[in-house]
Write a protein that binds this DNA or RNA. Structure first.
Lengths: 227, 227
DNA sequence: GGCAAGGTTATCAAATTGTTAACTAAACTA
DNA sequence: TAGTTTAGTTAACAATTTGATAACCTTGCC
């Protein structure tokens, strides 16, 4: 499955802050992007779809609240963690930031180590670990991600990597429709650009190899696992 | 769907703190349990399996770190949020608390409102399927946008995209009359220009497919969902 | 009857997906 | 390392589904 490094965007107008936070995040193995104002933050966010965005409240062009509000109104950033930073240590901003959809709110001066711990704690909590490496069993179909294989009626079917990942994604939530975009970002990653018919071809290969109707097309919307 | 109140356990040796936090949490609709030391915290936790535990670090019998460590070693509390409180404002405790598995770390003195915001933000983030909320249920008719399907009396009816979107729009507010213009802009968008009879044709298809009288015509005005 | 509003149906165009084959990249093998 | 196999992607075209419209029908009302 998608094993790209976790992407974090830092938006702050103080270069020193950016530098020191970047340093610690990079050392911890994250992929880091930066922005020096609110508009750039939105641009970079749209471009990279980071997993976490660290937003200073007081920034030029658009402040952190505005950026936060924008991000939260956009489905693309549903799963993106937002950590707000501010030098203003007042209760009202704190609450406002969280109510606008922020996931954490940290007062400056910042200890980079504490910030890192907090981000790590957030990621730990939202890890859908429960499903990782979990064998999926539906009727006589077994999908085992630890071995990258599927067993149907006792017969092992070997799927290629992408095929397997696509099937696993859909089967992890039977019945739920996955939009083509979701499938692309989950299986192929956000950076990879592949053509329109790629998903279809993989779906077809799965259908042929398994020989059962397990993936249903929802025209104009996406695909779902139904079995 | 989970309709039980969310359970929160507060463990602190200062009765004043317990009282003020309890007050705010109860007002916010949570079910509250309390403990005055670490041992009692563990007992109450085992007894009620709360969704969130607020732990003071400095407590008699067992301190917050110990309790946190215990909870995290126990699968029963996998999904339990842990918020640590402390009067000690030092970086090392902060990091230690998060590394032991705490989900948040808040310094005293505490603003109950801020604490409540933070807890709410945590719960919001770990909510599994935001989509589950959007399922519409009326008598024996289910309209599930995450699965793009309708179930009537146990029978699945497959609607086309526009049909489904139209039905979902109307059914989201049963009884309310939607003007033709509203329907056009919601389902077709503001840029698309379609003819007069288009809505009628789609309404008809829904009526035929579901086989029930669920969409009522309001002559000269629009349509409404009534069932 | 004449009019207005909506219902019904058939038809055609447009959008979307399915299928196949060819091409490219990566992994494997000797 | 060159040759070979396998996986992944793309392009082209076929098949299918969906959506929009026109034409005509029905109903209610004056």
């Amino acid at each position: 499955m998608e094993t790209n490094p976790i992407k974090i965007l830092i938006a702050d107008d103080e270069p020193d802050i950016i530098e020191i936070i970047s340093y610690h995040l990079l050392k911890a193995g994250f992929e880091v992007f930066t922005a020096k104002d609110g508009s750039e933050a939105i641009e970079k966010a749209q471009q990279h779809t980071p997993d976490c965005i660290i937003l200073d409240i007081m920034m030029p062009k658009r402040n952190g609240f505005e950026v936060c509000e924008y991000l939260r109104s956009n489905k693309q950033f549903d799963k993106t963690l937002i950590v707000l930073l501010t030098a203003l240590n007042d209760e009202a901003s704190h609450i406002k930031g969280l109510e606008l959809g922020g996931d954490d709110f940290v007062n400056k001066p910042i200890s980079p180590k504490v910030l890192l711990s907090r981000i790590t704690a957030l990621f730990r909590r939202i890890q859908p670990n429960a499903n990782d490496n979990k064998v999926i069993q539906v009727r006589d179909l077994t999908i085992d991600p630890s071995q990258y294989k599927t067993i149907l009626n006792g017969v092992i079917h070997v799927l290629a990597k992408k095929e397997f990942e696509l099937l696993f994604l859909l089967a992890a939530q039977p019945g739920r429709v996955f939009l083509r975009n979701e499938i692309l970002s989950q299986v192929w990653g956000n950076d990879v650009i592949v053509g329109d018919r790629t998903i279809d071809v993989h779906v077809r290969k799965i259908r042929v190899k398994l020989g059962i109707e397990c993936i249903t097309t929802v025209k104009g919307v996406g695909y779902k696992f139904d079995y």
